[in-house]
Design a protein around this nucleic acid. Structure first.
Lengths: 191, 191
DNA sequence: CGCGGGTTTGATGATGCTCAAGCCCGGTGG
DNA sequence: CCACCGGGCTTGAGCATCATCAAACCCGCG
């Protein structure tokens, strides 16, 4: 159960985990099963924990004033599910996060994070690396959203995240890309 | 000269700067004047330093295959100018960064950063806070780019970054928003 | 067999881009 | 002091892209 998380941490840091580190991690991350459709965060709530996905798939989205869902993020094995802004600033989230498949996660409460895990060097290093990557990955996605056509963005996604295409239905991919599902359908058939 | 930087650091961290910290910072950040139009980074170069803007305005952009410039970031006083991805990964940048006005910056070389400043707690804390903010600010901008109309994005910018509107000509703002300059012009006149 | 979620297809219209021309205004030189 | 120039902003017409609405289709499943 914990193996994916532990190796994930070590893969993203230079310092290895000590035996105590591992014990601490195992005591603070609690396993949880999320059934398909079940929420771990809803609009208006403050995000007080983060979840590492061991197996399964989740999605994060907003609902606009017209009741339309907009996918912000799709996440599968070895990803984190949370609303970073809400988590860090203790402000209510405007997002929903729910399970798209039955999902196994390891949940870490914010309080445990700050009181205990912050003392594990590999953990801190990993988080820093992730924040950095996250920042410039987003930057690229942003730049692509502003300047590329729907078609370019789709092919971009195919080459960078082929797993997503396998894993999620087309209309979620469309929403993730910010295009109408019909548009994505036409894109695909015309090429 | 150093005051804006020092108070910037303290504003973004909980630990104060010691006297030695301040001396170290002053010895590693070197002041530099950048004339309007002068580059601090060009496409193909590896970004080996970061610059804190004390006074002035800069812009970061790409040039696409058709020779069109796309503004990806505008920066004024109390901002950092660099290509984070290139800086962190030692890979060639695809961006240009140049001065839009005559600009005073404090330049920090990557090597100095890693060898010395990494030992200043307030500095590390500041960087972490910035990365976090940066990440979710980009996330918002991304979401807005995907789901909002050009008009909404423009009004968004007016309310979050009114300084930009004052400081940069309209056609740069348009590019930053990812719309044609004509479109932005029409938007403004129709409201 | 029929139902339902997901995808496709078609028609129509809005949004925003491109190209082209004109305008405004501050700066420069005659 | 005025004419001209140039950078930036505006205006217009036509067109491409993409959203929207509506209907049909596909296919696995009860």
């Amino acid at each position: 159960m914990y193996q994916p998380l532990l190796s994930y941490i070590e893969r993203h840091s230079t310092t290895p985990l000590s035996g105590e580190d591992i014990e601490l991690i195992q005591s603070k991350f609690t396993p949880k099963k999320i059934r398909k459709g079940q929420y771990i965060l809803q609009d208006g709530e403050i995000c007080r924990s983060t979840a590492f996905i061991v197996k399964g798939a989740m999605r994060q989205y907003t609902v606009d004033d017209k009741g339309m869902e907009h996918i912000i993020q799709l996440a599968i094995e070895n990803w984190w599910a949370d609303d970073r802004e809400s988590f860090l600033t203790d402000t209510p989230s405007r997002y929903y996060i729910d399970a798209w498949e039955n999902t196994d996660v390891l949940v870490l409460k914010k309080t445990d994070y700050y009181e205990h895990l912050i003392h594990i060097p590999a953990m801190m290093e990993m988080i820093k690396v992730l924040d950095e990557r996250h920042a410039y990955a987003n930057h690229k996605r942003l730049h692509s959203a502003l300047n590329d056509t729907a078609e370019q963005r789709y092919f971009n996604l195919i080459s960078t995240r082929p797993e997503f295409i396998q894993r999620f239905p087309q209309y979620l991919i469309a929403s993730y890309l910010g295009v109408a599902k019909e548009t994505l359908s036409r894109l695909r058939s015309s090429n």
